[in-house]
């Protein structure tokens, strides 16, 4: 918070990033990082660390990896995720269900993001995964509902589901909870988390204008960085007042 600390931190991060790529000032860094994410395998380690330092140079505070939070999250996360799975899968016999279990599984991702940095988690959990969870869940729910319609019944008429041996009513409901509601909820909540973390795209290049490339995600990364840097500068100025 004090000026002296800020200055030393700025100097540290500057010396760290300066040898990496001297043309760091403008959008060159983000395109470099984009290339790295495709080549280097552990993206949450090397690449985003440098991107982290880059963003800290703007903020004036280094990303401090807490010695308390990281080991604790490493211990807690498997249990919390397993518990979310339990709540989802055991919803028919105990309190819970897809909604609650999906929320807990999304909270596990929040935990990881707080421990290892949101940008690192964003690299680790691709946009494809989040979108596939949400869309796949919705399609699976609709599919389970429409199969009985195709067989001549009503929407979600579970006893017409072609499930061999097992009880079609019970396992149809379990299927709706497990592959329908839980992925939708966890995917949408993770998406909301990453969206709110990146903030409003103040450049207005959200739809259409940023899709000159055939791959929208790669092309989109540069305006995101620009926008977040602008917003962080504005937030910094607001905090100093």
């Amino acid at each position: 918070m004090s000026d002296a600390v800020d200055d030393t931190d700025m100097a540290d991060t500057a010396t760290d990033t300066r040898p990496d790529d001297p043309s760091d000032a403008s959008g060159g860094a983000s395109s470099d990082d984009q290339g790295d994410t495709e080549s280097d395998l552990p993206p949450h380690r090397a690449v985003s660390r440098s991107r982290r330092l880059d963003s800290e140079e703007r903020q004036g505070t280094p990303y401090t990896e807490s010695q308390v939070i990281m080991p604790t999250v490493k211990v807690v996360t498997p249990f919390a995720f397993t518990y979310g799975l339990f709540i989802t899968f055991h919803g028919s016999g105990s309190p819970g269900g897809g909604f609650q279990g999906g929320a807990i599984m999304a909270a596990v991702v929040f935990m990881i993001a707080f421990a290892f940095g949101i940008e690192s988690t964003r690299d680790w959990l691709a946009n494809t995964v989040v979108v596939a969870l949400a869309v796949g869940g919705a399609l699976a729910f609709a599919g389970i509902g429409l199969v009985p319609v195709a067989l001549g019944g009503a929407f979600l008429q579970y006893d017409l589901l072609p499930i061999p041996i097992l009880d079609p009513v019970k396992y149809g409901m379990e299927g709706v909870e497990i592959v329908g509601i839980a992925p939708i909820v966890s995917g949408v909540l993770m998406g909301l988390f990453f969206l709110l973390a990146s903030g409003f795209d103040s450049d207005g290049s959200g739809f259409g204008s940023g899709s000159l490339d055939e791959d929208g995600s790669i092309d989109e990364s540069e305006p995101i960085d620009e926008g977040s840097s602008l917003e962080e500068d504005a937030a910094d100025a607001g905090g100093d007042r």
Partner: peptide, 23 residues
């Protein structure tokens, strides 16, 4: 659920208080 997720609330708020969520 609370025992597992209460920790998340604490670390979220405490990390937010460091430099207004800059980290």
């Amino acid at each position: 659920v609370y025992a597992l997720l209460n920790f998340l609330m604490a670390i979220a708020i405490s990390k937010f208080t460091v430099e207004r969520g800059g980290v």
